[in-house]
Each structure stands twice: as C-alpha cells, then as structure tokens.
Design a protein around this nucleic acid. Structure first.
Lengths: 344, 344
DNA sequence: TCTCCGACTTGGATCGATCAAGAGGGGGAT
DNA sequence: ATCCCCCTCTTGATCGATCCAAGTCGGAGA
C-alpha cells in the first residue's frame, strides 16, 4: 500500500495509529518491533491501521531513543584516474544490497583532509551518526583500525591487519595469494613454464601476498622464479616498462600481474613489439575490472568474491552490534579466475 | 582536538557543555547554530568547553527536533558487467565531497525490487530518513521523477526530463550533443570527412541527443550522414558488429560512439581486420572511463564534468531545502574532450 | 534619571518512539 | 473461594537538542 500523504503535512505518528486502532502507543510499537507479544487479532487490527494511514516509524525519534541509527559508515575511495582498479563500484553495490536486506543503510563520507586519515570517522562517531564503520583501506600500516579500536567504535575491516597480527578487530579479506596461485596454475596447466610476475613495491603487504601465490605455484612444480619477478608502482606505464625489461632479460611466455592496471601495461608492451598476446604470450591480471572484461579479446583476471565479502562484513557487523557483542575471527575468502582470451 | 572519550559511555551532551562553560543550554545551542548572537568572549568560552569535552551535537536529537536529517538519498546503480560505463564511481565521489562540504552526507540505497523503480525511495521518504533525493536514472520515461513530484519530495535529477518537457523539477545535465559535436569537430579538423556514428537504439533519448551532435557537426560542413550511422545495444559485441558492417558498406575513416563500450567494440572490429586504430582509422568514445584511459594508446573520449554536476546538484538541493524553497531552472553543463592516441 | 537594547538565563514544551513499570483480567492450582 | 501468575495491554518518563516566551541584568543613550 503506497503512502499517499504529502510530505509538507506531518506524516502519521505512532500515536495516530494507536488512536485509530483503539490501542495504546506502546502496543503499536510492539506491533512493529515485537509482534509476537500481541494477540493475533490485536496485531491484525494494528497492522490494518498502519497500512491505512501509511505509517512508518520516524527514524530520528527511534534513533534518539534506541541510540542506534542503523547506518553503516563507509569512506568512499574513488578509483584513481588512469588505473583499472574498479573494485569499489562492485563492492559498494554488494554492500548496499546486503546491508539493505538486514535493515541497514550505507552512509558515505569522504576524508575531509587527505593528510588526516582519521577525520571523517571522528565527526560521525562523535555525533553518533552511524552505528559502525566498514574500513576498506587497510593496506600499509594505516591508522584507522588502531584509532577506531582505541575509540571502541564498532567496525569491521575489509582487509587483514597486515601490519599488526595481534589486532583483535573483525575483518574479512580475500586470499590474494590463492588468487595468483590459481592464475599461475592455470598457466602452468597450459604448458607455460617461464611465467613472470609483475607486482607492487615491496612495502605493499597485499602485493607481497599476491606474489607469494605465484612463487608457491612455481616452486610446487620445481620451477625457478629468480629473474622472473618485477616490483613496480601500480601504473600502466610502470607495467609496460617492467614487461619490456622482463621480455628482454628473461623471455617469459606468460605474465601474472598484481593488478589489471599492470596487466594492461604488459599488453601495451607486447603491442609495442607486435607480439600477439593470448596466442604468443599469455597474460593474467587481478581484479576482473571492466577493463579486463572489455579489452578486445578479454583479459583473464582473478576475481574477488565481493558479494560474499559484503555478506560476511555485514554478518560480522551484526555480531558486533548485538548484545553482548560477538567478535568473530577473521574471514578469508577465495577468489576465482575469470578466464578470457589473454590466456586462452 | 580529538575526542578521547569512549563510545560505551554516554558522550557529552549540550547540558554538559553548558555547565562546564558556565552558561545556559540555550547559549550553547546558539554558539553552535547561531554564533553571531553571542558576545565574542562568551563564544570563545563555550567553544573551549566544546572542544575540551569533545562535544558534538547528537544527530538523532537534532534531526528529531528540526525535522531534517542532512542526509541525501542516492540510489546506487553499479556499472554493468561487461561494459565500460563507470561514471557512477567518479560521480558518487564528487557528490560525497561536495555534499560533505555543505554539511550533508550521502545515504545509499538499492532498489528493493528491480521491478518497482519507486521502492526504496518510498521507505526512506516515509521514515523521513533523508531530506532529499538525487535521481540519476532519468533515461526513458522512468517513473521516479513523476512519483517524487507527486509525493512532494524534494529531489534534483541528474539528467533532463526527456519524456516530459513540462516537468518542473530541478535538474542538472550534461550536454551530450555538445560532447559528440566536440568529438566530431575534432575529427573533422584532423581531416576526416567520412565519420561514422554508432549509438544506441532510437528509444534512448540520450542516445538520440548524442547522435544529434554528430549530425550537426557533419551538416555544418555540408558532409552527408546517410549510411554512416548505426544504432545498437550498448554492448561491446554490438559495437563490434556495427563497426564491421559500417566498414564494409560505408568505409568510414573515423568513428564517433555513444559510449566507451561501443568504442571498444570498434577497436575490436578494427583489430579483427588488422587495422591499426589511431593511425589508419580514428575512434572516439564517450564517458572517459577507465577503459578509455588504460587501453593501450588510449581512447579519445568525451568527458562529463561530474565534479561540476555534483556542485550544481547540491546547490539546487540547498535551494529546494531553504525556506522558502527556491526552485532553480535546469542546468546544462558542457563536457570536454580527452584526446588520446585513438584519434591522434 | 529613565528608557531601551543587547546578551544572556530560565523553565518549560516539543519532536516521536521506546523503556520500565504497573494494571487488569482470566485461568489454573490450592 | 482465594491466591498467584501470566498474558496483554497501558501509563508516565525518557532520549538530547531546539523552540518559545518571558524575565534579568548591566550599560549606553536621551
């Protein structure tokens, strides 16, 4: 039953419903929040009144009384220009969907000042505007997690606490090493033996993790990895240069990359030399970005199960917000491989 | 001054601040909301107390009293898989930033049921959870705008009311025709005369608008357009097929496309024939997606000024929410052209 | 000296829902 | 018949900020 009232007039309140149904306010409140407490006929009467009036509880009033907003704060980090990293888009959508199905909404905010990673969180926390946060940028030792822990703010991280194994907060992450191992094995199964790695600089925990998956797969088949790895910045041009050097010095037949951005750099380098990628040399990226999907022929890429991540994150949040709080351990999910022509 | 209290304990209230500063509650409230009413020294004293206690007004209480949430509702539509449409990401970021700078936050929600375009809006509206909406999907005659107007819900649309020129609601849009005209003129200036168009099916207002820009530029130089246009679905494969047909039947030397997705299809078709794109045949896309940015060589593309769009949207919203409401007319912004190798 | 005004204070009511007790009635046990 | 309990529903207080109306006080201007 759609609400046909007008916004400019005051919407019906709980008291209005109570009067109409001939019961008390509390009974209406219970009808909404604890229907099992009412006698079936009373419940039906109240529900009729609710739908006749088009009543919906006022969020602000409820928030005030219950000290909960049913809002989840998320700092929105846009994709960088000139890269292929597009995980945020898919992730946010999944999160909004799962949160919505559990009665939560997602509140976005931007870091007020780029220098202070904690601003933004602080404001919302103090104003009790959100119930909890989801923290996404846990690469390198970033201060959010520690700060939020210290503030006793409920939060779940998408990403492991790399820099602090003793951290006790809840987290959900995707097993990057498993992803690159999957990719490498896929190439090994195709007969490749000289598989190169292009990843991020050594201070990136995520980058080293992904690299480890590649190395693990290679060593499992007694293949050498020395001279086959390169660590650069996450830009197309870096990937291109790295690929060029590797082609000259190690003549690999395949590349596994820490990101689609780097993989695009490899494609670029191959194009420079007139090498037909996919046929002559195989390439695998990471993130299954739109770029991987639409580049002519398609780029094989490791795909993170972001829908699952969202589900686990919300599940963990609900645990934290329940009374008493239930702090689950970290959750590590496995990625899959989207195979396309670049490795076919 | 960071707040050092704990979330589990009750945060300081306005009354606490009042006591500490030795003034009344009303004065603290004024210090926060109408500082010009206070004598400078009193104001300073109150502000000291505020920062010492780490006070921040309770959002729920304020929302309840003032009947405003300072939240803007936005339905989050993720990019479709397999396309290059990534405008949402950049747009959302801009919106979050501008909204934040004006004291607003962005609340995301998903359409509960895909069939009912209006669900989601309804829930939030009835619960007075948001002050206003930003509506983004105004292509084809979609019911949101009309429905929201009827509900007297404040909203601003990103996108013109194509299907209803008499619509009176506020909107902000980007002049797509101007964008394709820019693109076409760019190619004309490079010496091309046989410039083909690949756009969307005729029932897409946006598609027809963009097509009009191409046609306008061509006609302005007395060049024919017949046989040079194709209208297909917005997928890479459609673009590829359309390009293939056009190459056979009209032998164009350049392509202007309604989207980067279609442009990628063109690149694909050119690759199939071993045609060196950018040198032999020029291609221009639309949206300046990540794909356009990282595809080897780079794809020239029309770029929407999404930062400006966000600013105008928020400005319009503030007008709507002020008392009395000020309904500005529609705002039409001009896109720019990001020139890359595909047209160089 | 009287008046006026700016800069507060005071005490209350209010927003709308929920919490914490309490009241009434019927059934079962004693 | 009496007591007790539980189920169902009611009542008054409460969350924290803002709105409102009236009152106080000191200093500047007439």
């Amino acid at each position: 039953m759609a609400w046909t009232g007008r916004l400019s007039l005051t919407p019906p309140t709980l008291a209005d419903v109570a009067e109409r149904a001939g019961v008390s306010r509390q009974t209406v409140s219970n009808a909404v929040n604890n229907p099992e407490l009412l006698r079936p006929d009373t419940l039906a009467r109240v529900q009729d009144a609710i739908s006749e009036l088009g009543y919906s509880p006022n969020r602000a009033a409820r928030n005030l009384r219950t000290r909960a907003s049913h809002l989840i704060g998320l700092k929105f980090n846009p994709a960088q220009e000139g890269t292929a990293n597009a995980a945020m888009d898919r992730f946010v959508h999944s999160l909004v969907e799962t949160a919505g199905s559990r009665g939560y909404h997602v509140l976005l905010f931007a870091g007020s000042s780029p220098t202070d990673a904690v601003s933004g969180y602080d404001d919302l926390l103090r104003a009790t505007a959100v119930d909890a946060f989801i923290v996404t940028d846990t690469y390198l030792g970033n201060p959010q997690a520690a700060w939020l822990t210290q503030q006793r703010a409920p939060f779940v991280a998408f990403g492991r606490p790399w820099d602090n194994p003793e951290a006790t907060h809840a987290w959900v992450d995707v097993d990057g090493a498993a992803g690159t191992e999957l990719a490498t094995n896929h190439l090994l199964d195709k007969g490749h033996t000289r598989i190169a790695w292009i990843g991020w600089r050594k201070d990136s925990f995520i980058g080293e993790d992904r690299r480890a998956g590649w190395a693990r797969a290679m060593h499992a088949r007694d293949l050498p990895t020395t001279g086959l790895a390169s660590r650069v910045e996450d830009t197309v041009s870096s990937g291109r240069e790295a690929a060029s050097v590797l082609l000259d010095e190690a003549s690999p037949t395949a590349f596994v990359c820490a990101s689609d951005t780097l993989a695009m750099g490899v494609l670029h380098a191959l194009g420079d030399r007139g090498i037909h990628w996919g046929r002559d040399i195989a390439v695998v990226g990471f993130d299954d970005s739109q770029v991987a999907q639409v580049v002519p022929g398609g780029l094989t890429s490791v795909r993170q199960p972001l829908e699952q991540v969202a589900v686990e994150l919300v599940k963990a949040l609900e645990g934290l917000l329940s009374t008493p709080p239930v702090a689950g351990p970290g959750v590590l999910l496995s990625p899959t491989l989207a195979v396309r022509m670049s490795s076919g």
